[in-house]
Every structure is written in C-alpha cells, then in structure tokens.
C-alpha cells in the first residue's frame, strides 16, 4: 500500500487531508461489451486526486479495455460513471479528453513522421506551444534522435517519445499500460519520476502491469481485474 512522505497511508486519510475535492474517476456498476462479448461487468472504482492505482490482471482480463473506458474512449453498456467530472455517456467527455494521457503497450505514434514531428503534431492538436518539443525530447534522452523517423526508431525510443508527449501536455489523469516494458533503467526511472510528479501535482495515475513488486512500490493501492470484475 502507498504512503505519504510522513508515513501515513493515503487511503486512511480524510479527503481534505490530501487536498481532495471529488474523485477524478468514479465507476459505478459499469459493464462493457465489445460486439457480443462481455469484457467488463459490474466494475466499481473510485480514484482520487493524488492517487497512484496499480491495476493487475491476467492476460485477457480486460485491463486495456478498463483503461480505454477510463480514458472515455469506450462507452459503458451498463452502469454509470464520471471521469474528471464528465459523464461517460454524455458529450462532455470530449471536453475532458485533453486532460487524459494514455500510453498503451503499442505506441500510438505515426511511423512516417520523425519523433519531433510526432510531438509537434501532438502539441498543435492539444494547443500547446511547439517550442516545448525540444525541451521534452531532451528530458527523455531523445535530443539526438529528434529527426529520426519514428518507424525507424526502437520500441523503447517510441515509448520515450510518448512519455515526452505526456510531459509536454498538462494532464490530470495518466493511464499507463505496462509502462516499464521495453525501457532501460534510465527510462524506467524517468517513468517512475513522471508518475510521482503527476500524483504530487494533484493528478492521478493508473498503472497496468504484471510486475507486482515494482507496482507495489509506487502505487498507493492496487486492484485486481479477474473475470471482468475488479476486486
């Protein structure tokens, strides 16, 4: 379980003690179907500001679907929920998407563009000044590879570029799917620094991983997804 710097467990604190106003994520009996397959059922979850939540589950348990649900990219078939105050079924969710960052296990970058061009595209669409691109690329150790086509970059470099994107855009909620895979030691430190910083700034982070030991160290609490339901 996670602790604050003074040793107190986050989940035992009253909300006002760690600056919480309302949960950033509320899922109430949510179910998700893809086609005729029920992926998630009766999922109940609250994530507060400042929290890092570890999400475990075996292959096919629905972890990625759960992240896409929280990212407002999938509408629930049953139940209700809000993310950053926006109802998961209302058009309001489009307005909060810019405040949600997600890094999946397959990089969502464009291979025809260079790493820097990918970030410039992201900056322009998100309305962030493009002059931050060089700074964030340097911060993730990609200063020398800015002009390399993303398609010709290693998986690890593509993931670093995605972390650079998340550094560049101010997100309130960060969803990470196996963030440690394909990364070297320096990049792992960078990721964990980003997670800590996001939580300290009052955001929230959900980390999906099979590496329980590592997640137990950085998460304030963990939940397990089994048979499409959280426990």
């Amino acid at each position: 379980m996670g602790h604050l710097e003074d040793g107190r467990r986050v989940e035992n604190l009253p909300a006002e003690d760690h600056g919480l106003v309302a949960p950033l994520v509320v899922l109430d009996g949510v179910g998700v179907r893809i086609g005729s397959t029920q992926i998630l059922r009766d999922v109940n979850l609250e994530i507060n500001a400042g929290e890092v939540v570890g999400l475990f589950g075996s292959n096919g348990a629905g972890k990625t679907t759960a992240l896409r649900l929280i990212a407002t990219l999938i509408r629930p078939a049953e139940g209700s929920g809000t993310v950053l105050g926006a109802d998961l079924t209302s058009p309001d969710r489009y307005d909060v998407r810019r405040r949600i960052g997600m890094i999946g296990h397959v990089p969502g970058i464009f291979p025809e563009l260079t790493l820097a061009e990918n970030l410039r595209y992201a900056a322009r669409v998100a309305g962030v000044p493009t002059d931050r691109v060089e700074t964030v690329l340097a911060a993730v150790g990609l200063a020398g590879a800015a002009d390399r086509p993303a398609g010709a970059s290693s998986h690890g470099m593509q993931r670093r570029a995605e972390f650079a994107r998340e550094l560049m855009i101010d997100r309130s909620l960060l969803l990470l799917d196996e963030p440690h895979s394909a990364l070297d030691r320096d990049a792992v430190d960078l990721v964990e620094g980003l997670i800590e910083r996001k939580a300290a700034e009052g955001g929230a982070v959900v980390v999906v991983s099979h590496d329980r030991d590592r997640i137990n160290k950085i998460a304030h609490r963990t939940v397990e997804l089994a048979g499409g339901t959280l426990s």
Partner: peptide, 15 residues
C-alpha cells in the same frame, strides 16, 4: 491509422 494512433489523437482533443 491504428487503434493506438486513433486513441492518441482522440486524447489530444481532436474532434
């Protein structure tokens, strides 16, 4: 366009 690319664009606020 792959699903991760579409997701990334959607989360940048692209309508």
């Amino acid at each position: 366009e792959t699903l991760p690319q579409q997701d990334a664009s959607a989360l940048l606020g692209l309508d």
